[in-house]
């Protein structure tokens, strides 16, 4: 299952890049994240509670950043097991691009689910995954905006 998206962020590439590696930012941005524990420089152990309509499952797993090209791109991957509900895993190639005032973040993800989630969720899995990916990057943006507040970024006049 392939997902794609683009997000224009009101921050410079350095800030965006740093946020991608920031445990606190990730913890807040990952939808349903209950705990995120740093286990290595670019590795984390996560507990995530997903609630989508009639499905509500707690996943235990790992989040990792790899294939790092500083200030350009990295792969953000995660996998988790939700017990009888099954498992989910995904890897998003994240690319950032300096647009001067803003930064464009593009992601292209490949995600898969297994077990009961896969066998029952056919009708809704893709929409749900898209929604969760969207939520992650939207929250990511919101957090950046929040962090940027003390030093206001000039806003172009309309």
């Amino acid at each position: 299952m392939e997902l794609e998206g683009t997000q224009e962020l009101n921050a410079d590439p350095q800030t965006v890049w740093a946020a991608l590696f920031d445990r606190d930012v990730l913890e807040r941005a990952i939808p349903g994240c209950e705990t995120l524990e740093q286990t290595g420089e670019t590795e984390f152990a996560a507990t995530v509670k997903l609630k989508v309509g009639p499905v509500s499952a707690r996943f235990k797993g790992a989040v990792e950043l790899s294939d790092i090209v500083p200030l350009v791109s990295c792969t953000l991957s995660g996998k988790g097991s939700g017990g009888l509900a099954g498992f989910a895993r995904g890897a998003a190639r994240v690319t950032i691009e300096d647009l001067g005032e803003t930064t464009r973040l593009t992601y292209s993800a490949d995600a898969a689910v297994g077990g009961k989630l896969a066998s029952l969720g056919n009708r809704l899995i893709k929409s749900t995954a898209q929604k969760l990916a969207g939520e992650f990057f939207a929250d990511f943006e919101a957090i950046l905006a929040e962090q940027a507040e003390p030093a206001p970024v000039p806003v172009p006049a309309e």
């Binding site: 499905v55 499952a57 009888l84």
Partner: peptide, 14 residues
Amino acid sequence: HSVVPSLALRLQAP
């Protein structure tokens, strides 16, 4: 009729 089957399928555990 949505909640009960999702419970039987153990897709949630309230």
